[in-house]
């Protein structure tokens, strides 16, 4: 059973390959605003490192966000097309859930959502967009936070007594290996998780 996973919802694009539940190789590339465009090169890297081609896979796993809208779409369009072209099943894993998976237990995942907001989720926290200060006040003091949103608003979260590892700690980066451990090929469609509505106002009297 060979599975490929990729995630491009954050500024760190990631891809990984697993054989029979063992992570064979993982690659990541950090590039603010541009990481998602590297994803197919990452996919080629991990397949080459694992000595396999697309046709040798049994399934593909994709991070469904939340994060950058464009990043989510590039990753999901890539994964969907790869799966369609190679007739493989596709499974989606929430990017927030993947962040939690790799973190210490009971950690809350926090992804930068721009516009002075973060997307966050945790054991007792529903996935949603939050104002950092509101989120800091909502969480039980001493909560461990991971993700680029935790790093960006470190001051706010630290002031509320929450624990955040050093900026370069790998716990803050989404890892496609997490997706491989979490994926369930149960036939459910992979659906993008935007957690924010598009900015658009219906015109008056529109039908």
């Amino acid at each position: 059973m060979r599975l490929l996973a990729l995630d491009t919802a954050t500024d760190c694009a990631t891809a990984a390959l697993a054989t029979d539940g063992v992570i064979v190789v993982e690659r990541a590339r950090a590039a603010p605003g541009a990481a998602a465009r590297e994803v197919l090169a990452l996919v080629d890297d991990v397949l080459a490192a694992g000595g396999v081609g697309i046709g040798d896979l049994d399934g593909i796993v994709v991070g469904t966000g939340p994060g950058s809208f464009t990043g989510i779409r590039i990753g999901m369009a890539t994964a969907t097309a790869l799966a369609d072209a190679a007739s493989l099943p596709l499974a989606g894993v929430s990017t927030l859930t993947a962040l939690c998976e790799a973190a210490p237990s009971a950690a809350v995942a926090v992804i930068d959502a721009r516009r002075r907001e973060v997307f966050a989720a945790g054991p007792d926290l529903a996935a949603a967009a939050y104002d950092p200060a509101t989120l800091a006040a909502t969480l039980r003091p001493g909560t461990t936070l991971v993700g680029d949103g935790a790093v960006r608003y470190r001051d706010i979260f630290a002031a509320a007594g929450h624990a955040i590892a050093a900026d370069d700690d790998p716990a803050h980066r989404v890892s496609a290996a997490s997706h491989l451990r979490l994926a369930r090929f149960d036939g459910a469609a992979a659906v993008p998780t935007y957690l924010r509505e598009p900015d658009a106002v219906p015109r008056e009297g529109a039908r």
Partner: peptide
């Protein structure tokens, strides 16, 4: 479209 096209071409 560009991401999908690249992935189809690659696969």
């Amino acid at each position: 479209g560009v991401a999908a096209a690249k992935a189809y071409a690659y696969a």
